[in-house]
C-alpha cells in the first residue's frame, strides 16, 4: 500500500466520519488531489476498506458519474458541449478548433498529459453556446483566435 495514498484517503475519509453515505464528496475530493484527474485501483481499494463497503461499489460509482474517472486523464479537462443547443449553434467548428489547437481528437489526452479533450452534455451555458468547460470554468462565444489564446494561456504561454 502506498503510504501517500493511504494518508490522503485517511484524512479525507476521517473528515467525512468514514460514512459511506458521503462516498460522492469523498471521491470528488480525492480525485481533486490527483494530478491526472482520476482515482486509481489501489485508492479505490483503500477507500472501500476505510468506509467498510465493497470495492465494486466504489468502482461502480466512479464509472457511473461523468465527473469521476477510473482512468488517468490530463491535468486540465476540456469538455465540449455536444448537446442540442450547441449542435443547433453548429459546434462543429469549435470542436475542430480545439482538436487543431491541441493536436488530438476528442476523447484523447495530449502526449504531455496536460489536456484531455472530451464531449460532454449540456452544462447550462446555452446562452453563450457553443460552449466549452475547462475544468470548472465555462467559456462561450468563442472564435478561432480566442481558442488559441485560451489554450496558450492554459499552457502558460503568452501570445
Amino acid at each position: 500500500m502506498k503510504p501517500e495514498l493511504e494518508q490522503l484517503a485517511e484524512s479525507i475519509c476521517a473528515k467525512y466520519d468514514y460514512d459511506a453515505v458521503n462516498l460522492l464528496p469523498i471521491l470528488q475530493e480525492i480525485q481533486s488531489h490527483s494530478a491526472r484527474n482520476y482515482i486509481c485501483e489501489e485508492m479505490a481499494r483503500i477507500i472501500a476498506q476505510k468506509l467498510d463497503i465493497t470495492e465494486s461499489r466504489v468502482y461502480d460509482v466512479i464509472t457511473y458519474f461523468s465527473a469521476l474517472s477510473s482512468e488517468p486523464r490530463g491535468e486540465i479537462i476540456i469538455q465540449i458541449c455536444n448537446s442540442t443547443t450547441c449542435n443547433v449553434n453548429n459546434n462543429r467548428d469549435l470542436i475542430h478548433w480545439f482538436e487543431e489547437e491541441l493536436g488530438i481528437n476528442v476523447g484523447e489526452t495530449t502526449p504531455d498529459n496536460k489536456f484531455t479533450l472530451i464531449f460532454t452534455h449540456c452544462f447550462g451555458a446555452c446562452d453563450v453556446s457553443p460552449a466549452v468547460r475547462i475544468d470548472h470554468d465555462v467559456y462561450g462565444m468563442l472564435t478561432r483566435e480566442k481558442v488559441k489564446e485560451l489554450i496558450a494561456a492554459k499552457r502558460g504561454v503568452v501570445v
Binding site: A48, I53, T54, E55, S56, R57, Y59, D60, T63, Y64
Partner: peptide, 11 residues
C-alpha cells in the same frame, strides 16, 4: 457474500 468483486459499472 460481501466479497464485492462483481458490480455494475458505467451507465
Amino acid at each position: 457474500q460481501t466479497v464485492g468483486v462483481l458490480g455494475f459499472v458505467h451507465r
